[in-house]
Design a protein around this nucleic acid. Sequence first.
DNA 1: CAGGAAAGGACTTAGTGCGGG
DNA 2: ACCCGCACTAAGTCCTTTCCT
Lengths: 353, 353
Amino acid sequence: MNDSVVEIGSRAGALPPATARLSDVAAHAGVSTKTVSRVVNNEPNVRPQVRERVMLSVVTLGYRPNAAARALVTQRTHQIGLITTASSLYGPTAGLFSLEQAAWKAGYALTLTTVREPSEGELAEAIRYLLARGVEGVIISGATGVLHLAPSALAGMPVVSTSPVSDAAPNHVVVDTDQSMGARAAVRHLYDLGHRRIAHIAGPLSWHAAVQRRDGWLRGMKDAGLEPGPVVEGDWSAKSGHEAAFSLDRAEVTAVFVANDHMAMGAIRAFTEKGIQVPGDMSVVGFDDVPEAAYQMVPLTTVRQDFVAGAERSVRELVQLIENQPIETTSIYLPTELIVRDSTASVIALDTA
Amino acid sequence: MNDSVVEIGSRAGALPPATARLSDVAAHAGVSTKTVSRVVNNEPNVRPQVRERVMLSVVTLGYRPNAAARALVTQRTHQIGLITTASSLYGPTAGLFSLEQAAWKAGYALTLTTVREPSEGELAEAIRYLLARGVEGVIISGATGVLHLAPSALAGMPVVSTSPVSDAAPNHVVVDTDQSMGARAAVRHLYDLGHRRIAHIAGPLSWHAAVQRRDGWLRGMKDAGLEPGPVVEGDWSAKSGHEAAFSLDRAEVTAVFVANDHMAMGAIRAFTEKGIQVPGDMSVVGFDDVPEAAYQMVPLTTVRQDFVAGAERSVRELVQLIENQPIETTSIYLPTELIVRDSTASVIALDTA
DNA sequence: CAGGAAAGGACTTAGTGCGGG
DNA sequence: ACCCGCACTAAGTCCTTTCCT
């Protein structure tokens, strides 16, 4: 038989091999495997002395429970999958670590998956991959339009995402910041400063977040009784913000609401190159409140979103889904906060051509 | 018996339950489990007809191999753990996605773990956590000084990190960009522009990367026969760069080598506030080449590092370690590239007080 | 009837749940 | 109350058997 393995385990020198099994511990402590299991899992009905003896054996043998064996029998992996866009954009990454820590606290490990573009095909592939890995739920964040997920691909797997899915899936919750309200707050701020012609530099409209912010801007303009100014679409990068700003006609607008901070930075640079002062001649509002926003040449007025709160909420909802606890809502929208700095100022002269 | 399970599996309607087992497929196709295993794993010695019939059963039952069972018997999880610093700093995150994609290509899944500060304790905890999760190797990136890892904690686990470990561990490879050479290139560039008094704004010196860049600057100065200018320590943030720049005496220096781009941005802003023109009165070189570096008010001269290459190399080395293939070196340093933009200019007047 | 491809069956992996003592 | 032993989880491995020239 393979008692030899036991022998090797118990005869090991200073560095115990990582191969100690439950049965090795049981043999070493002179109890049954079941008893060791009880001790390891902190279950009751073990005498303190026995418990201690087992613990000692665990330590001396360097025993570590085998996750695979445990998962096999309990049907639980305590793993959740994260599908995110492969880019170092601030938004997707900012929430990442909070997500991991929230998952950790909840007793789950995070398995990371990236997609280039969240097409249905790529998403399905990512989900298959995670499913094969045995994750118990999935969080989809980052670049996503409305998700078109074939329900069959999910196979009833709990999902939390920042974007809604096309078909109302049963095990799905949306957790996102209230992009629309944030955008409206930005417009309101500009309106209060006297701006009437407000342009928008949008993010890529394949992103749900970009659409939401544009629609929020549109809605804000309408609410204020204003004619929406021109819209230019960028790709979130400073570069695209720079280009977008160049295409904006100074005569037409006195302020721009930009869909994220990095594009706003590029835009401010473009305006400066054209001889347009920010905020003297042009007010700019960004979105995100990236850490360096306050330390730009022109400290940026922006809409802050709380990525930490979003991450924690996402994990909480997902875990509830996984553990079949009742959930209250299927869509949760977190508030934003307008941070006023120096890139916005009141209009001195309202010169409309 | 549990034939009932089989029955449920085969009688399922449009949406097959995710519970189909290998034996269910075998029963459905009228073959042995071993044959199904052969088909699923693309092994030879199965007649094409049989193979096809099995495949059909796999599809109709929605069979998916159980990762836990497979891992248990093969003793392979195909999972690697990533330990990184919980911050949305550009450096650590930039490599993250490349890491995931490289791992994916190599057939491994990435499990994410974060630490606040990479102290020995936190690292040991993270490693234990990953070990318990069954990872086959670990990549440590981000904020790390020289790693003090108790060899016993690792238990012989393959490790790739950006920082060296104190005790030469057997299964350890260092993969990092050549920070020192990058810093020296920056100094050289400033020297060639006529600068002689070059200050340094360092990153937090608890980071190995920060130390390396400072030492590179020191070495570069020495090589050029220059007296090192003042050093101020920041924390990588734009804010700290801003503060650091304020403490620099204009009379003393004509150029600053800053340990990362975000601090450089803060520094440029601070100089401007003090009425010091960049690059007219002061040259600034950053490090990283973040995407927005080119679109700042003053496009930033910086040292670019290739995070993608680093990530790919890290995974490659780790997989070699895991699969017991011979490795050539235990330390790999990747080259950097100096990107010259507008934040550096030649010295017009050398006014030393 | 030797010989090789194709398929089957018992056993193993590391734990946990359930009944019994 | 405390502890033991057996059955069971879902795959894969090794070895054997069957089948077909």
